[in-house]
Design a protein around this nucleic acid. Structure first.
Lengths: 122, 122
DNA sequence: CGGTATCCGCGCCGATACTG
DNA sequence: CAGTATCGGCGCGGATACCG
């Protein structure tokens, strides 16, 4: 059995690979808020609004494991943890800005130019 | 009215909104392949490689509903269905290209500059 | 060829309770 | 404050069979 076709996209497709990093349920928003600077856990949770503590923790851990987010623990009482983008994470900024612009224009404020061009049945 | 965002991201966050459109499990790859031009169903399935018929259908339907993808049915035997990007879909091209570039550089071919900068414990 | 229909396991995710 | 532990519903998504 030889694999003559294109590369299996599930393994080597760079678009999928990128989306697996930022495509998690709360990762987009989280990253976007971290673009504004270092944030504490509570700060993030408050700003995102509807994320549960459990999920925010999970998403942040995964982002950390992807090398996108840095977790800084202060050994103080009460505990203080700060999250920030790593160098690698900052390379995502243009993409996040592009996503925001696109979402703004084509989802949140659908313009008449976004109407379905045609539905073809021949 | 000025947008004083800093509230509930779950409803009005444009980044999330955009990711909900392209973030489906197979949507990224699918859209990327459709950037190369109009494709038939089988063609897409073969190129993506590991997607099941059921899932590809589902993802394409959702993309269609989002106004991103056009479905053109030819009334012939055997059946022939062609998928293509709509005008709105084509506005995603720069984002898809950026995602591919990022995935290539930072996921598929991790460079030494992507090493964790530091893990801070103060 | 390009789909539905159906079954079903698994893991996501919310809710809640507890902790250092 | 910033988590972890545990339970449980339910929807995602694979496998399979069938259809126009």
């Amino acid at each position: 059995m030889k694999k003559h076709i294109h590369y299996e996209c599930s393994q080597g497709c760079p678009v999928e690979a990128a989306l697996e990093v930022i495509g998690g349920k709360w990762k987009g928003v989280t990253l976007f808020h971290l673009m504004q600077g270092t944030k504490r856990f509570n700060e993030l949770q408050r700003e995102i609004g509807s994320v549960t503590q459990r999920m925010l923790t999970k998403q942040l851990r995964e982002l950390e494991e992807s090398g996108i987010v840095n977790r800084k623990i202060y050994a103080v009482v009460p505990p203080k943890v700060e999250y920030s983008l790593t160098e690698k994470g900052r390379t995502l900024e243009p993409i996040l800005l592009a996503l925001r612009a696109w979402g703004d224009e084509h989802v949140l404020a659908p313009s008449p130019t976004d109407k379905v061009d045609n539905i073809g049945v021949v």
